[in-house]
Design a protein around this nucleic acid. Structure first.
Lengths: 241, 241
DNA sequence: CCAAAAGTGTTGTATCTACACCCATGT
DNA sequence: ACATGGGTGTAGATACAACACTTTTGG
């Protein structure tokens, strides 16, 4: 057996939708390298620990949620020889989707964790585009190759919304069609027609199933509440513009 | 840094279409563990070698082709603690697509490599389904977790044929629409209407571009020859039944 | 001439988009 | 009453499946 010395880690791209915006959980690094930069949460795989178990453990640590029931999937593995200046570290990236948490990020360790607007990180940073008055976040440089990992994970999420019921993973157990539409709009970054969206979702077999309850939490006429259906793929798929 | 002792390897799922069937390159293991079983070609990542470089090196070694221009993409990483009985080995799986080689598998090292029908490997093996008179191949048990890796890679290929021009990676530089259809039929395992397929492919922008040449190698009326277009995604996508 | 494969036209059906319109609540 | 969001109906455009039909070669 050929045991080249290397570290094996998992990095997590934890996404949520808050206030109509797609956000990612980032940690500000307190120590070099990349001290002061933002980074994806992650950690080393323990001996005899499965890769997904590592990711799920990190997810629980960072969000304070029991990771059961949360969506978690592997995205890709990054292993360029010098991606970490300290030595060879190969990292398996996972994508996690969580609903908008009522509780703030709790249980995270000493480092400061925050929800950061994904667009603020991924937008091209022309030197003159620095001042963005709306969000306050101006420029977010990620440590290591984490910008690429984030981009790959977000692209995965965008693509999977089309043909899978993944968007429900961003929602609480019971949700309205409008709230589900809000997820699509936030992740894709485009507005959708509320009426056509409603029809499409409710007519796609097993995408969502109605409960007997309604809510007025979004204002206006009471909306039917739904929970996830049993579908694993959507026929026909949802379509972006 | 946390250097747990482990081996890092890449495994290759090299697919081709021969005689209208989807086939995978497998190697018969000459030594334990799993001596005598079929396995995916693979090998350990060298110090300072990028993951994809490892995969491309293995691909060139096994097929005897220069790996340049061949399609190669990462599929997933497999790291269950006891997937290899010799110790902890984490493997990054890559999918490679090659055209039907005029030359047989050359340059492969001592172990015997063969093209094996993918269906013969992936079909469910109920104990009483062992005797399959049609294909002659009865039972192909793969070593390690390679059956799962193969299944994941094939599913990836099947899905990508829908929305990407990936099928052209199975074809020689110049090909007819029929040959391209043969790829879809082999990978998806279903027949397609030649007339609708022709229209669909030629009307999808930048999927294929016509050359000035024709061929009669498929018999019948001479067929227009095409080469790959510049599209990276297909609009509209190709559809399975 | 016939067989075989290439390629075009047509028709009915499903789906999408855009938008008019009505429904049920809070204030 | 009116603002707000929930939900249904409908018409034109687009795409699809099925299949009749014509074209161009080899034998």
């Amino acid at each position: 057996m050929d045991f080249v010395p290397l570290g094996l880690a998992t990095d997590l791209v934890i996404l949520t939708v808050r206030g109509g915006r797609l956000q990612v959980l980032l940690i500000r690094r307190g120590i070099p390298p990349y001290q002061g930069h933002w980074a994806l949460p992650g950690g080393f795989v323990r001996p005899d620990e499965d890769l997904e178990a590592t990711a799920r453990r990190e997810l629980a640590e960072e969000t304070g949620l029991s990771a059961e029931g949360l969506h978690l999937e592997q995205v890709a593995t990054y292993g360029a020889p010098h991606r970490d200046p300290r030595g060879r570290v190969v990292s398996v990236a996972y994508l996690a989707l969580v609903p908008d948490l009522p509780a703030p990020v709790a249980g995270s360790d000493a480092a400061s964790a925050s929800w950061i607007d994904v667009n603020a990180v991924l937008e091209e940073h022309a030197a003159d585009a620095v001042q963005d008055g709306r969000t306050g976040v101006r420029e977010v440089r990620l440590a290591f190759d984490h910008r690429r990992i984030l981009a790959d994970a977000v692209e995965r999420a965008r693509a999977k919304l089309e043909y899978s019921p993944l968007a429900t993973a961003f929602c609480p157990p019971e949700f309205t069609i409008s709230e589900l539409r809000g997820v699509y709009e936030a992740v894709w970054g485009i507005p959708l027609d509320p009426r056509n969206f409603h029809r499409k979702v409710t007519r796609t077999p097993e995408f969502v199933t109605p409960t007997s309850a309604t809510t007025t939490r979004d204002g206006g006429r009471p909306a039917q509440l739904f929970h996830r259906g049993t579908a694993t793929t959507l026929h026909p798929p949802m379509t972006r513009a």
